Each structure stands twice: as structure tokens, then as C-alpha cells.
Simulated assay, not measured.
Amino acid sequence: MQIADSIVAITGAGQGLGRAMALYLAERGARLALIDVNAAGLEHSVSSCKKFAAEVRSYDINVANEEAVDTGFSQIAQDFGGLQVLINNAGIMRDSMLLKCKEGKVTDRMSLSQWQSVIDVNLTGVFLCGRAAAGIMAESGEGGVVINISSLSRAGNMGQTNYSASKAGVAAMTVTWARELARYGVRVAAIAPGFIGTEMVAQMRPEILQGLVKQVPLRRLGEQEEIASTVAFILENDFVTGRVLDIDGGARI
């Protein structure tokens, strides 16, 4: 697939990796539908992409709401005349230990709301957006590409029962969809980033940041553009499907 003139929807495009991917693709001529519930961040992303003379529109869609997703993606297809790419990037973190004990008694535990909020956005949101986008692609007869954003944490990470479970689910859905949707010309792949230098990571305390870097054999954080360039690789290589690409500098949990 050629990136230039392709119609690309990106969820979670109001900041971080979502914005970085949008900018990378805008510079290469993609037509962008940027999705987020963060209005201010979304406006910033749109204005930044327009510097490359890209066609870009914004959409306030709650990815965890079925009606909002189906209506929103129908509107995207109507506005752009179709949809060829979805980057399922939206995600949240609500870290907590499963439980904590003191003197033989449970003193704290991950709440159901902490669990459910992450599953709703990171897993159900990916399902809903993937289903809506794939339906548009299949009906067009021209196929397309779905790229899901998983995580190094899909293998399990302390304090992230909810996040790790959601990202493992994303990886599993990626393989399943690739097998199911190939008959319609839809390729599906995932990227599992390691420790990336996003705004959130940059605000960590120095000692925590140093601890993260020590876990990476290359001894540095990944750059957001390195994730964006992986998106471009998946789009441009028509034989890539059903795979989760670890972009983590060699780190393993």
C-alpha cells in the first residue's frame, strides 16, 4: 500500500504516539481522520498535521462506546469517501498491584473500576474500532490495513494486571483478525512498543527513568518516530500480516 493519498484513521491521536504517527504519515501525504476525546490535544494534532498541507479532520469518539464508534466511523467513510487504514492506538493506564497485605491482612487491592476502565478502552475499544473499520474495508472490495498497538507489557508486568491483560488480548486479536480478514484483502498487524520517550515518560523522576533505561540492552529509550516508521513499514509491505512487531531495543519482560 502506498501511504500517499491513503485514508488513515488514528485513535488516541491527541497526544504521544498517536500524534507522532499522525505527523509522520501527514508528511508522507496521507489523508487523516484523527480520533480522540481530548479536544485540546486533538486540535493541536490537527493544526500540526496541516503544516504538511495534509487533509486532516478531527473526530470526538469514545472508542469504548459501540454506538459512538459505529456512527463515527460511518461519518469518516462518508467524509473521506472510504477508509483504508486504521491505527488502533487509544489506550489508558490505571496501574495498581492486584493486592497488598500487611501483617497477614489484605490492606488494598486493584478495584473493579481500575480493571474495567482499562479493559473498556484498551481492549473493547480496539475491538469496536477494528470491527467498524474492517467492515468498511471489506465492503469496499479494496481491502485495507489494521494496525493495533500492543505493548511489551503483554507478557505480564508487576502492577499492571489490567494493562498487561488488555495488551495480551490485543496481540491475540491481531492474529485472529489477520486469519479471518485475509479473504477480504484486509491485513492486520500489531506493534508492541517498549519504553518510548513520550511526554509522560519524560516527566518521570530521574531515578525511575534511569531504571527503565537499564532494562534496555541498547541503553536508551525508543523514539516516537521509530514507532511511526514501523507503521509505515507495515503499510508499505503487503506481505506483512498476523504478526506482532516488538520495537523495544531488545528489552524483554
Rank of each mutant, 00 (worst) to 15 (best):
V244T: 14
T174R: 06
F233K: 01
T161A: 15
Q15F: 04
L218H: 11
V240A: 04
L235R: 14
A138S: 09
Q210D: 14
Q203I: 00
A4Y: 00
F233A: 09
A33F: 09
L25G: 07
A171M: 06
E223V: 06
Q224F: 00
E199T: 10
R187D: 01
V213C: 10
I147F: 03
E103T: 02
R28A: 05
L25W: 13
A168C: 02
D238P: 14
A53N: 13
G159M: 11
I196P: 11
A4F: 02
R154H: 13
G222M: 08
V85I: 12
D120N: 14
E67S: 13
N237E: 11
A90R: 05
Q160I: 14
I136R: 04
A192E: 14
R243D: 07
V186F: 07
N157S: 05
R252Q: 02
I3V: 15
C101R: 06
S117A: 12
Y24N: 13
A53Q: 10
V121F: 01
V121C: 11
R219A: 10
L218E: 15
I191A: 04
F80D: 10
E27P: 03
M93W: 12
A40I: 15
A251M: 10
V85P: 10
Y163M: 03
G135E: 00
N62L: 04
Q114V: 13
G130L: 12
I147N: 04
V126P: 00
T71P: 02
L83A: 05
V175D: 03
V186C: 01
L42G: 03
A171T: 12
D120H: 05
A165T: 14
A13Y: 02
T11C: 02
V118A: 05
S113I: 13
V213A: 06
F73P: 08
M158Y: 05
A132K: 07
N122Y: 03
V106H: 09
V231C: 15
A192V: 11
K214Q: 14
G222I: 10
T124G: 00
N88P: 12
E180P: 08
